[in-house]
Design a binder for these strands. Structure first.
Lengths: 258, 258
DNA sequence: CGACCTCGTCGCGCGATGCGCAACTCGGGG
DNA sequence: CCCCGAGTTGCGCATCGCGCGACGAGGTCG
């Protein structure tokens, strides 16, 4: 438990969550054992566990009165890691792309109001040592973000987009120009961001699709703006589009155009 | 929420757990949004979320006041699925063993006071259609259970072993004979259970070890007692020991005898 | 078989804890 | 600069979470 919180924890909630930790450690436990761990009366432990059971966070084993963590935990975990299968499929292809371009390749998914970076492979030219994996990055200021936004319907887009903070003087901070940019992404089939998140950083991104042609992730190549332009940029785009299509095929996508 | 519980849920705990579900659905949410979902005052939502944050079940995103599910969820999930890597390593080998013996192969791990069956492959002779996967099975009455118990230290063994209920008239129901049996398992390197869980069911099991030579799982071959005896049993044991050693090597084990 | 023990589960009444309220702070936009 | 909305903080009240004790079920032992 973090001790830098000024707010006093809600005692009964705190106790219930401690029960989850006890069960994680012990595997299986009865009410009396849990009550002893919490230093509460066993009827208290029973009530708290019963509440946890209502939410499937604990379940009773075949043995009478024995409890263990329940399938609800896996459901919650699934909500945070649901996209890991796309990481597995994309990993080798990300490596090949990084080798082909020499730049940094990232894989990102939409998570709430931001782009969650799931994987990163650095190429030979990559000077930046910054690891984006596990981080939430602004959607509107990144090529991956633009890809992830590009085919959302109006309602969902409205939900996802909050404020459009500025990171450089190139950042798009207004709705209208962003909408125009997203239309161009849809038309081109990929997104570009030049100096919009960081000065001197250019990135291109292409969509990864599932069997229903929905965009489920985005793959990007990013590097220094002075290097990633002109013919070098065009080649990176070509490689990127092929790589993203390759991952999409693996996830069941059929190109409707061919 | 299950509605067949007679116990009234603890309201504040119920609310906190509902917050987890809201965040699982929404990805990211602020205090006011969560308060609206729960139909409570925002200061209540804030306090509950703060308690969840103490346990790392939610965390704040980079955006001020925005919350999402936290890494504590993955830790809890890990406690329930921590052994999935052994399943991946063992799967192919279980298939080969089932093909070689024609019997049913199971993979089990120690989970609290029972053997948790993680995987099952049926061979050509397998008549039983019963799937044990996901089930907790008594330790003392099964070959897998005996393997999992065989190298536990006295304190841990005492913890794990509760009552020794009888399933057939062959079940070991007393401590002393069970200790004797476990000593024989250690000496032989595998366990046998004949008609101890079910009449007519014979099983042999061998330990799967990690890099530290700890037993982390058990692999078994089980079949009808009328078939699995004599030379057939001896051959199955030989195949089983080779298969379990193969999985153990994959998990980093080095045979100290060779 | 009966007695005993332990455990989970249930119902009651009390007071402490969880709650809503209102005020404050902070950040963003016009 | 002002306004608005969101998060955060502190206060006091009443309701909800608690401990207590009783009960039933299951297991063990003599």
């Amino acid at each position: 438990m973090s001790e830098d919180r000024a707010v006093e924890p809600v005692q009964s909630v705190d106790r219930a969550l401690t029960i989850l930790e006890v069960l994680a450690r012990a595997g299986v436990a009865g009410v009396t054992e849990v009550a002893a761990e919490l230093d509460v009366h066993k009827s208290t432990a029973f009530r708290l566990m019963s509440t946890l059971e209502c939410h499937d966070l604990v379940e009773q084993t075949g043995d009478r009165g024995k409890y263990r963590l329940g399938v609800g935990i896996l459901r919650l975990a699934g909500a945070t890691t649901a996209r890991l299968d796309v990481v597995q499929e994309a990993r080798q292809i990300c490596r090949r792309l990084a080798a082909a371009t020499g730049e940094t390749v990232n894989l990102a998914v939409l998570s709430g109001h931001s782009a969650l970076y799931l994987d990163q492979v650095a190429g030979s030219s990559a000077l930046q040592s910054h690891n984006w994996v596990g981080q939430h990055i602004p959607l509107h200021a990144t090529s991956n973000g633009k890809v992830l936004l590009s085919e959302l319907d109006g309602t969902r887009l409205k939900e996802v987009l909050g404020s459009l903070p500025s990171y450089t003087d190139r950042t798009i901070t207004k709705k209208a120009p962003l909408m125009q940019e997203l239309a161009e992404v849809r038309e081109r089939g990929y997104a570009i961001a030049v100096d919009e998140l960081e000065q001197g950083l250019t990135a291109v991104a292409a969509p990864i699709r599932n069997a229903h042609s929905d965009i489920i992730a985005s793959m990007s190549v990013s590097g220094a703006s002075f290097r990633l332009r002109g013919d070098v940029l065009d080649l990176a785009v070509k490689e990127l589009l092929a790589a993203a299509a390759d991952v999409s095929f693996r996830l069941g996508w059929n190109d409707p155009v061919t």
